[in-house]
């Protein structure tokens, strides 16, 4: 570094990006979220080509890339296919730690839904565990209309 800058104290500019977003859910995710809110029912889409049932639903089959889809309700119960337990309160966490995140394959679905598991000792959560959805009436048409999953017994 050259002499003219040797004694300069490096400065840091504290700032933020504070742009508000309003994402349109669109007709497909919108129907899924409204059904969660209004009927406490979890909907998926069945591809009429490959027969896979995708939850959450997609307008286009993610594997076949066709729009040829039929709406179908899936169970509010399913199986944990992967999970993790957040112990440190990192900034993205909405809930207080420990938080159990999980991928849950609902009965009748071929893909797994991302959500949280509560009301259980994290040490007891296993891959293969059976869970069911608990709904929230206050979350509106959002993914949090499923407030969390709990073990089935």
């Amino acid at each position: 570094m050259n002499n003219s800058l040797k004694h300069i104290e490096p400065m840091v500019h504290h700032s933020q990006i504070n742009v508000p977003y309003t994402w349109w859910a669109g007709d497909t995710a919108g129907r899924f979220l409204k059904t969660l809110r209004d009927e406490q029912t979890i909907m998926g889409t069945r591809c009429n080509h490959c027969a896979r049932v995708t939850v959450p639903p997609r307008k286009t089959c993610p594997t076949c890339f066709t729009e040829n889809q039929t709406w179908t309700a899936v169970s509010d119960q399913g199986t944990v296919v992967a999970f993790s337990v957040a112990r440190r309160q990192l900034a993205a966490l909405v809930k207080k730690v420990p938080v159990i995140f999980a991928l849950i394959r609902l009965d009748g679905a071929d893909t797994a839904l991302l959500h949280t598991i509560s009301q259980v000792d994290p040490a007891e959560v296993t891959i293969g565990m059976r869970v069911r959805a608990c709904f929230s009436k206050d979350a509106g048409a959002t993914i949090m209309a499923i407030s969390h999953f709990v073990p089935t017994n």
Binding site: P10, M11, S15, Q16, T22
Partner: peptide, 16 residues
């Protein structure tokens, strides 16, 4: 249906 970002924001410490 609209999903809102609400209070979400990203803080930064930009080196000058």
């Amino acid at each position: 249906v609209i999903i809102e970002s609400g209070a979400a924001r990203q803080p930064f410490n930009y080196a000058v």
